[in-house]
Design a binder for these strands. Sequence first.
DNA 1: ATAGGTGCAAACAGTTTGCATGTAT
DNA 2: ATACATGCAAACTGTTTGCACCTAT
Lengths: 123, 123
Amino acid sequence: MKRQTRQGEVILSVIRSAGRPLTPLEIHQLAIQEIPRLGIATTYRHVKTLCENHQVVGVDYPGQPTRYEWADGQDKVHFACRTCDKLFALEDTTDDEPPAKVPNGFKVKGFEVMLYGTCPECK
Amino acid sequence: MKRQTRQGEVILSVIRSAGRPLTPLEIHQLAIQEIPRLGIATTYRHVKTLCENHQVVGVDYPGQPTRYEWADGQDKVHFACRTCDKLFALEDTTDDEPPAKVPNGFKVKGFEVMLYGTCPECK
DNA sequence: ATAGGTGCAAACAGTTTGCATGTAT
DNA sequence: ATACATGCAAACTGTTTGCACCTAT
């Protein structure tokens, strides 16, 4: 996506200002408030290229569609509430060192930590 | 699934003896060697109940179908090779303490660490 | 002017479900 | 005997693609 379009601007800004990981559908629904005729395919196309450019990262939660959030360069720690299924992005307190050792021959270029449990709202 | 059937036995044994996380399709293809007429839906049904019983856990790698592996009770560390897309289960060297701190109100019941990079076979 | 982006609809992949039949208890 | 599991096909959900039209460069 090398050409600047209104769709691209809006989609990027939606993800950037969300503050939490969004599904492609959520991104589309938010973006549609600005561009009513925006197609879902366009949303997917932009999310894909943003991922490829590493401006956005995908977060997976088993049994649910992938969510996407703004990539600020640092590795991610997420918390998934098993009661309400919300996904939270937490501060990375691991100090940028991979939280586990790997056998010889493996080269670690990044990591992601997913914590499971219950969030404050679910007691 | 409260009744003992050949399908159930085979599916469970396939996952248990795989040594790495398998997609539902892989599970089905391996199980079919024992039960040629095994349906894919039956495979999904068993995987689902095995998950619910916590005998099996799902591992997600963005852009690919969920893989399932035998749950031996301990939290998991996985390594995803970004070149060949293989998924490896590593020893958990985190010593059973969550590798990150959480804000007040969050209760951590388990965690999963996903490392990204290149595996030994991919240089 | 033209390469690249868009919307729409159709295609696709992974997973779930309805139902008639089979089988463990 | 009967409640539960199975296989098959159809349905569903999330994502991608083909194509005619549109638009930033």
